[in-house]
């Protein structure tokens, strides 16, 4: 399919297509959403089935579930402090959702829902709304002092305030584009080199031997993408925590 019309078609993998037939089509339920549902099922299975034995000495699955719990718990407590405890379920859901989205996307035939800017921006928008609402709820109108740091000379206000406001508003954009761009770049690379394997592999007798090169690159890329999957989920979660810290403490 990839090597048919155009030489390299790296982008069609991101096209959305409805699942569940007519019903899915009518409610716009695409394979992206199916993978979200799958991620949710897997996360819930890990956390519920993994902890089902409630063992004092955990087995493998329970250790995995507990590590995930304690990793995010440590993240929240370290970045936000004790007040951050009530945001823990949110950050945990966010981290696991992004992580499972990234990891599921690496499976053959699977779709990477985190490669859609609409999805990553949707998540970043939820974070943005949350931090703004939390900051307003805790600090009231004092929250607007956030845009003008204390101690700065007053004549700098016309410069500092717009810069601060722009940097605050750009948070969801940078947060969403970082994840989106990383996932798209990785999957485009994988697709491009996979296409190379097919194109070069068809070139006569020596073709299959030369095609080993892009194959080797793809093997390395999959490992690299695995790292990126974890790293970007971590970055998404830790930036959310840092923003929450700002919202709770105002600097």
């Amino acid at each position: 399919m990839a090597a048919e019309g155009k030489a390299i078609d790296a982008l069609s993998q991101f096209e959305l297509a409805p699942v569940l037939g007519v019903v899915g089509n009518s409610v716009g339920f695409s394979q992206s959403n199916a993978h979200m549902l799958l991620a949710i099922v897997l996360i819930t299975a890990l956390m519920v089935y993994g902890m089902a034995r409630r063992a004092i000495i955990p087995g493998r699955l329970q250790a995995l579930a507990e590590s995930a719990y304690e990793f995010v718990d440590g993240l929240v407590t370290e970045q936000v402090g004790e007040e951050g405890k009530r945001f823990f379920p949110f950050v945990f859901s966010l981290f696991m959702f992004v992580l499972f989205g990234n990891l599921l996307g690496l499976l053959p035939y699977a779709f990477t829902f985190t490669s859609h800017i609409a999805v990553t921006f949707g998540l970043a928008f939820i974070v943005f709304v949350l931090i703004t609402v939390v900051a307003l709820a805790i600090h009231g109108t004092k929250f607007f002092g956030y845009f003008f740091p204390e101690g700065a000379p007053i004549w700098l206000a016309p410069i500092i305030v717009p810069v601060e406001i722009v940097s605050y508003l750009s948070r969801p954009i940078s947060l969403s584009i970082r994840l989106f761009a990383n996932m798209v770049a990785g999957h485009v690379m994988l697709k491009v080199f996979a296409t190379f394997i097919l194109l070069i592999g068809g070139l006569g007798v020596i073709g299959p031997f030369v095609a080993v090169l892009p194959l080797a690159i793809n093997v390395a890329l999959v490992g690299f993408e695995l790292l990126v999957a974890f790293l970007q989920a971590y970055v998404f979660a830790i930036l959310t925590c840092i923003y929450l810290h700002d919202a709770v403490h105002l600097h």
Partner: peptide, 12 residues
């Protein structure tokens, strides 16, 4: 589908 994707994202 892009719009529906976001709506489903919020729901899910």
């Amino acid at each position: 589908f892009l719009v529906a994707n976001v709506v489903w994202l919020f729901i899910l």
